[in-house]
Structure formats: structure tokens, C-alpha cells
Design a protein around this nucleic acid. Structure first.
Lengths: 269, 269
DNA sequence: TCCATGAGTTTCACATATTGAAACTTGGTT
DNA sequence: AACCAAGTTTCAATATGTGAAACTCATGGA
């Protein structure tokens, strides 16, 4: 994972913030992890980290295996996971639409949402003939150099957009990466005009995509969807032929999301 | 939802515990919820609840809709959800096995894990001809009067078993509910001998099931699976004919879980 | 118009939970 | 037996959190 996105968690103020950052670290390991490993990553002193882990464990957010002395995600987090999934993720709503889009295009399809100023992939459909690539459901990626990321940033209200841009880290992944706030802003303006975004090998060499925001009638950005492929198989202009279908899909997802989650948002301005 | 399981969250000591309990409450609503609604449920004074919500919101665990003044699960929780799901849930491992069992029996199949002293349904397959019933993936239910619950409790090491029994609330859902710790202990002993548990309309009238624990060679209880039906369609003894298949399924899930998550647990004692 | 109401937010003196350096325990190694 | 690393506990200092009450602001009667 060539990472140009997030620094390793800095200390936070409140106790709650610290505890949550520890939770993140444990979750990020993706496997049972020892105290020492966490300590290395952690900005907190030994005793503090220790107590935070104890608290989280006794709260059921982490599970501690006494024999191995390892911490991992706890069952309470699984319970929250269901609720979060049903409430805050577009994935359950989008699923059937993505299936259709995926079948129609035969390419990889992504559904993403903004998490802080990063992109969280909440669902993915593989191409008929899958390509090796970084993204997968549950992973986060950079916003400034992915199709879905730029599609969402472009349609954010100015204040939020600025805040999000300020948090980007502008690592140059490829020679095409837009590696400065200035370049990004230019690009976002174009995207806003055009209505859709491209990724021209900005994150991974050879990988290109076309992306469209999922937004409500009131212009709230809920997420973005993209159709992704490889330059070895297709081109930007060819991907663009899918645009009507992608836009329809985004509109359908937005409409359903509004119906379910904001029943009277329909004509809000 | 006839609830005989959990009292509405009592105040906790640490700040972290309080914050997490608030998170639970918001998640439990399953929809955007107003401050006032939470305040009614909450054991915390207005100002405290308010600050906890602010903290959680600024941490991204909750999302606040300023126009509606509502809180809901945040995107950061979705990210954790993925990690938790992959790490702590048996569902991804069990999925193909449950598919097979479900197809073979034609009945409703549940996969559950223990969350505190309650049962968390982490996956479910509906019968060919689905029955209306309480459970569904992501929901919690009582342990003392469900097949999966009793199957897990029965095979817990004594200390944990006692702790879990002490936390049961013994609401009498039906005339068959085992509504005391004493009755439950007797039943658990039988189950431990027999190797599998039944639910004889103890939770919902007309609903019966047979359940088997998912446990490692080292006797760690990871979860339980059950095959559920209705007295109008079948009987306990008929359900019991599925036992070999259910046990095989449980064993297969346990074996895979051990391989993936505790690579050297295999012969631990 | 004006006051009453209630939801949501802020304040501030007080109480407490959190902090982290350092001491201690534990279990494995030489 | 002595050592070492990893994990756990202690304790006084203090940053954090607490919650009653005061405040703000929108709403809707009178």
C-alpha cells in the first residue's frame, strides 16, 4: 500500500477522541495485535495506551485474547457495524443499481463516500475480467487523485470544499497526479462545469476511470460512483460513452436515499 | 418488539463508556434522531449528553444534520464496521457454509455470536417459504431462551457461564420460556451432555429450532448456528434429523475460523 | 405585538477521571 | 541465578469532565 494519504494519528484532546483513535488503530491492523505493536504506532505513553485498551475491551469494543495477549475488534463493534451500515452507508440502497451498471458496462464499479477528507469505498463490483487494483470495499483512499474523490469534492459547498482540500496530502503517486492544491482547484472547477470527473492514471499507473457524484436535488453530496478500467483495455473517451448510464444510476441512488433517509428533503433548497 | 432483554442503559463511569453508550443509543434508533429524543432515553443530564454528542460528531462517529437537527451514524463508523465485520464476525467465513445448509434444509438458518450476555445475529438465511419472526442480521436477542443462545452458554467455561447467566433478565416470553437461572442451568447441563440445544417455543410462540455451538478444538465458543421452523410445519424430532448436517457445518466454520484467525490454535489446550 | 413555551446551547465553580514517570511483576532466555 | 523485555500497577498533579442553572432563539398563542 503506497500511502500518500494519512499521517499516523496525532494525539487528540478528549479522552473519547483518544479512545476512538486507538480503536481505529486496532481495526486498521486487520488482525489480532499485541500491546507492543500498538505502542510503537501510538502517540500515547505506555500507561495511557494500556488504560485505553482496557477501557475499550471492558466496553466490548475490543476483544482481548489473554493467551496470545492480542487485541482485536470486539463484538460490540460488529453490532454497531450493522446499524452504521444500514443507516450511513449508501451500499444497501445502491446494491441493485450497481449490479445493473456493472453488468451493463462489464467494468469495475465503485461506490464511495467521503470520510473526513478521504474516500471510503463502501461497495465495489469487479469487472468481468478483474484488474489488480488498490481499492476494495472498506478501504480508504486519497480524495485528490481518484475519480470518486474529485467528483465529490467538486460539488461540495465552498466552505467544506476548502476544508477538505486543506486536509489533502498531495503525494505524487504517478506522473499524472495533481500534486498541489492549486492544480486540484482548477480541476474541480472543470469537473463542476462538466458534471463528471476522470481519473487519468492519477492514483495508479494504467488505471483510468470516470466518476459521477451522487447528490440530492438540494445538492447535498452523498457519495460518488465510478466505472474503472485500464488503458490497456480502453480509453477515457470510450469510458465516457457509459456516462448516461452512470448518471442515471447515480440519480436513481440519490432518489432512493432521499426517500428513505430524508423523506422531506426532496425539494429543499 | 416485546423486549425482555436489556434495561435502558444505566450511567457508566468513564467518559469513554458514556460516549459509547450514547453511540449505541443513536445507532439503535436506526434513523436520524433528535437531541430531545435521545435525552428522554438517556441517563445523562442535558449538558453532558449534549457534549458527548458534540464530541462524537466532531470525531466523525456520528453525523449531524444541522437543518433537521438530527444525529445519525457517521461515516467513520462505517469504516470501522468493515474492519469489525472482517475481523470479529464469523459471517464472512460462514457464508458459503450457511448457503449450503440453507439449501439442504430449506429452513431458516441463523448464525449468532455472544455480545455481552446477549445473542447477536450476524447472519441469516430465510426459509424457502419464510416465516415471520423477530430475528434478523444485526439484531440482538436474549440468550436464555433462544436455541443459539443456549447452545453458546452451555459450552462456556464455568466462570464466563456464571457471569453470563447473572446478566440474563428472564422475561417470560411464552409459557415455555425458562424464566429462572435455576431452570436455565439445568437445561444448559443437558445441552452440554447432548451436544445441541433446542428452542421449544421459548421465545416466540410456534417457533422451534435446533442449534449447535461453533467451537474450536480447544473448546472456545465462537458462535452458534441454528435451523429454525414452525410447529405448523415440522417438529423438534424432525428438525433433529438435520443434526448431522448442522454439526458438520458448525465444524467446518470453526475449522476455517481457526485457520484464518488463530493460525496456531489448532491443538491448543 | 408581546409574552409563554420548549428545544437547544453555553457558562462556570466544582469534582473527578485521566495522566505518565517510574516502580513493579511476570515469564522467558542465557 | 541473573538478566531482559513485555506488560501491569501506583500515585500525586492536573487536565478534563460535570451538571444546575442561566441563556438564546424560534414558535405559536393570546
Amino acid at each position: 500500500m503506497a500511502d500518500g494519504s494519512v499521517k499516523h494519528s496525532e494525539p487528540r484532546s478528549g479522552t473519547v477522541g483518544k479512545a476512538l483513535s486507538v480503536l481505529d488503530e486496532v481495526a486498521a491492523f486487520g488482525r489480532p495485535v499485541r500491546f507492543g505493536e500498538l505502542l510503537d504506532q501510538s502517540p500515547y505513553p505506555k500507561a495511557t495506551l494500556y488504560r485505553l485498551l482496557q477501557t475499550l475491551t471492558s466496553e466490548g469494543m475490543l476483544a482481548y485474547d489473554a493467551e496470545r495477549q492480542t487485541y482485536s475488534a470486539g463484538i460490540r463493534l460488529v453490532r454497531l457495524a450493522h446499524a452504521a451500515w444500514a443507516q450511513a452507508s449508501l451500499a444497501p440502497i445502491a446494491r441493485p443499481h450497481l449490479d445493473i451498471l456493472s453488468a451493463a458496462t462489464g467494468e469495475t464499479v465503485h461506490l464511495a463516500q467521503l470520510d473526513s477528507a478521504q474516500v471510503l469505498y463502501v461497495d465495489k463490483r469487479n469487472a468481468k475480467d478483474p484488474l489488480p487494483m488498490y481499492s476494495s470495499a472498506g478501504k480508504v483512499g486519497p480524495a485528490y487523485c481518484t475519480g470518486v474523490g474529485k467528483a465529490m469534492l467538486a460539488f461540495l459547498p465552498p466552505h467544506q470544499q476548502n476544508a477538505a482540500i486543506a486536509q489533502q496530502s498531495f503525494h505524487r503517486f504517478t506522473e499524472h497526479t495533481l500534486a498541489s492544491a492549486h492544480d486540484l482547484v482548477m480541476e474541480l472547477n472543470e469537473i463542476k462545469q462538466r458534471g463528471h470527473a476522470f481519473d487519468r492514471e492519477e492514483h495508479e499507473p494504467g488505471i483510468i476511470c470516470i466518476a459521477v457524484p451522487v447528490k440530492t436535488a438540494a445538492q447535498h453530496v452523498l457519495g460518488a460512483i465510478s466505472v474503472t478500467s485500464s488503458i490497456r483495455r480502453t480509453s477515457i473517451s470510450e469510458l465516457e460513452t457509459h456516462l448516461p448510464h452512470i448518471s442515471e444510476t447515480a440519480a436513481a441512488i440519490a432518489a432512493e436515499a432521499v426517500d428513505w433517509r430524508f423523506p422531506d428533503d426532496i425539494n429543499r433548497d
